[in-house]
Each structure stands twice: as C-alpha cells, then as structure tokens.
C-alpha cells in the first residue's frame, strides 16, 4: 500500500486521483458505509482458499466514473476490515494490457491473499473486528 502511495504521488496528474481514492477507502468505506459490495469494482480474480472457508475475492478499488485512472487491489475480510495491497494505473481495457503492469500487482495480491487466509485458518493471524494481530495479540504481523 505505501509503495503504491509513494509511487503514485510522484507521477504527473495522479495526485488528485490518489487523494480521491484514499478518501474513498479511509473515510467513505472505513468510517461511513463499510465495505459494501457497491464500492468494489469487478472482482478481478478469485483465489480458491483452503476448505472449508470457500473463496476469497480480490477486488479492485476505484472511483467508478469514466476515466478514473487508478486501481488498488484489496481483500475485504468483513465489512469493517479491508486489506489493501498494491495497485497502479489502468490505461487499457484489461489489467494485462495496461502499461503499468498492474497484472503483476494483481498476481502479487492473490499470493498475499492466499497466505493471509492460510494464516487466519491456522491461527497465526487473528481477526478482531477492525484489526488483525498475530497469535499473541501483537499488531506487527510477519508472514
């Protein structure tokens, strides 16, 4: 997430979209409405999780109006907890065709999502409402 923010704020023309995206994630989703499906654009990919938990969906976050250039990959664990991954600029019809190689970030997000889900199932990571901790309740998690 921080890598995404630092990279995007350096790119010409991306400062305002970045501010809009952060407002959406932190204020609109985080503090007002929660992680409702209406805010998550096209489920780009599905990671089949270990049974019996079913599937975890990797979503794209954007402001859904024509021409919005940024995509941020994320995984909503519940309505209060959204894990943000990396993202980039989508300037083509598909992630694969975009010049910012966001398909690589999506692939990476899928890998993290799988690992996080496994860790939740084994108890390495514990979900407490809006927060994640390690098995001992510590906020720093190493996977």
């Amino acid at each position: 997430m921080d890598r995404f923010l630092l990279r995007m704020e350096q790119l010409p023309g991306m400062a305002e979209p970045l501010q809009e995206l952060l407002e959406l994630v932190i204020e609109t989703i985080g503090n007002i409405h929660g992680a409702q499906d209406a805010f998550f654009n096209r489920f780009e990919n599905r990671v089949t999780a270990l049974p019996p938990k079913g599937q975890i969906k990797i979503s794209e976050l954007e402001l859904d109006y024509r021409g919005f250039p940024l995509r941020l990959y994320c995984m909503a664990l519940n309505e209060e907890l959204v894990i943000l991954f990396n993202g980039g600029i989508k300037d083509a019809q598909t992630a694969q065709e975009s010049s910012d190689v966001i398909s690589a970030k999506l692939y990476e997000a899928n890998g993290f999502a799988k690992r996080i889900l496994q860790a939740i199932q084994t108890g390495e990571i514990v979900v407490h409402g809006r927060t994640l901790t390690d098995y001992a309740g510590r906020p720093d998690i190493y996977l």
Partner: peptide, 12 residues
C-alpha cells in the same frame, strides 16, 4: 475533493 468523494459514496 473530500466533499466530492463523500457524495459519490452516498449516491452509490
């Protein structure tokens, strides 16, 4: 920008 995104979210 804050107001725009807030209203966007509310309308959606």
């Amino acid at each position: 920008t804050k107001r725009f995104v807030r209203k966007y979210g509310d309308i959606v």
